[in-house]
Design a protein around this nucleic acid. Sequence first.
DNA 1: TTTTAGCACTCTCTCATGCCGACTGCTAAT
DNA 2: ATTAGCAGTCGGCATGAGAGAGTGCTAAAA
Lengths: 343, 343
Amino acid sequence: MTKTVDRRRDNVLKIIVNEYVANAMPVASESILRHHRLGVSPATIRNDMAYLEEEGYITRLYTSSGGVPLDKAYRYYVENLSNNMDLPAEEQQRIRRMLGDVGEEYERILRLAAVATANLVGNAAVVTYPRSSENRFRHLELVEIHQYMALIVLILSNAVLRRFTLSFNEPVSQEQLDDAAVKLNRGYIGLTRRQMRNKKLELDPIEKKISGAVMEIIAHEEELEYESSYMEGLRLMLGQPEFTQRDRMLGVLELMEAKAWLRHVIDSQVTGEGVKVIIGEENPEASLHDLSLVFGKYGIPDQVGGTLGIIGPKRMDYGRAIAAVYYISGILSEFMSRVLGED
Amino acid sequence: MTKTVDRRRDNVLKIIVNEYVANAMPVASESILRHHRLGVSPATIRNDMAYLEEEGYITRLYTSSGGVPLDKAYRYYVENLSNNMDLPAEEQQRIRRMLGDVGEEYERILRLAAVATANLVGNAAVVTYPRSSENRFRHLELVEIHQYMALIVLILSNAVLRRFTLSFNEPVSQEQLDDAAVKLNRGYIGLTRRQMRNKKLELDPIEKKISGAVMEIIAHEEELEYESSYMEGLRLMLGQPEFTQRDRMLGVLELMEAKAWLRHVIDSQVTGEGVKVIIGEENPEASLHDLSLVFGKYGIPDQVGGTLGIIGPKRMDYGRAIAAVYYISGILSEFMSRVLGED
DNA sequence: TTTTAGCACTCTCTCATGCCGACTGCTAAT
DNA sequence: ATTAGCAGTCGGCATGAGAGAGTGCTAAAA
């Protein structure tokens, strides 16, 4: 018989989470009954809520307020209570259309993916640049700007591309540059930075300078990739009632402009496959203790990968958030395969 | 004799603007005297303030509040009252150091310039990508990704660079691509899109496809350049007391995420040389009626140019803002010349 | 004509008070 | 294990009083 009791308690908890997520107001025992037929009286619900409170799932804002879910409730909800659904078909189509005819520019699809995700869940979304598991030299191009200066274009294995200029102490012709490009391209293709360093090529001073600059760029590549990301939908998140207090709003805003936490969180938490949900205090980053993250990887395993995530108050629709991250990161992965080809 | 009166009134207005900018609180007649020796009694100041109110320079929040500057006051202040100073030398140095050792990547210096500007004035700053007065073909590079797909790297005259992939219906080798690159580079160098279109080269189907794609990219270039910009320091602006009201804060946030206004404003208002100040209702864009903009161009005249601007509440330190835009856009211009070389 | 002193008046801001309504926790009955 | 009923708690809102800040006005002085 205790089984039906447990089931009802689960149910009550689920309803509390759902209602609270929807309305941002403490959930009263009677309002639970108003919209859901549980076949019991409000007093019973109150008992269940007392139990849930004792077990640490919910709390009350003041002596006789309704119930408010705690981290533990959300965790339990994510684990056991949310029927992890897919996104509704029509939304899937809308997104696919939106991200479909976007040409083949990284920048654009990443930004659009962030926008779509944010709008889907009414919170902020972030997409990091794709990052190679290992950057390999692919191609180098040299263009004379004027006698003492050349433009270097460097393409790495993940189709990421860097442009920079280099000045020389002596005049350099386009012919020299072309020769250097041929030599370096032939010698370095497919190599990692370390392999490049160990490979002894016969280089004249100019080629040496170019090759040194190239290696330096590759070395800094990882840093850069972390730095750049698209964040969209801040206004949606900050429109949520949890940020009515000005200081919390500004605090979050500051956090979002700094973004240093992003790297730490991704490195330490989003390592595996699938969608990772980090609720409030579960986050090692103290500044994020009253926010939740729903993050997932996209990309091609062992080749390139980036991260797509949602940031919002703990009171969020986790089911929907997980579905959104899952679906949209899938689309991004498709995009990556298409653009990179099947090497 | 009326001259000394006028001078004093100017002075009063100046003090009111300064104090209000500093404290965001209505300026009382006595508090004007507290910190500035004007040699007259508070009653005289009150009379002057009554005059300023009548003339539409200031207003009062309620019957007996202190004076608050109106748009007209700020305009008059910018025009006549602010001793348009330079940035303090030490700040100039700090900025130059910050933007100096930044390598030669556009993205990074643009972002840093936005950050520096924002911090300097405690408001949001925006930097648009540099934009060519006319995009000319400079160099093309083709890399095989796999048999049916190639990576195209396109460099335009302003050193802007686009990467995209192209699929073919028939297998293509790197040799073919190299040949095509040589031919197209030779044929198109220095041409605008229109000139390219008119120039009849002998092209095989593959080359034709590549050349078509290139022209398409150039055609879309202008749009893209407008779209991307760096905005920093939102949190600083929103920390200002004018945004204590939640809805104003969210309104501004929305505005800043959309950015559609940016293009209109720049096109219609920031055409000329020098720093342009747009105060509140002066702005044709109604959504910006209680904000002010301080915008300026950077770049190389008739070659490439972008815009650097400050966005904040009307209550801002215009002197400092103008100096900041002036100085930092100067640095960006230097950067552009250095990177582009002296063609 | 301009400036000054003095004073009554206006308005905001803050704090205290009291009341209404929402919701619970407890007790005792089923 | 569940229910009904009721006392008790607390937030939210409206009201009002009092203090403080700062003005506008009037009449006198420079």
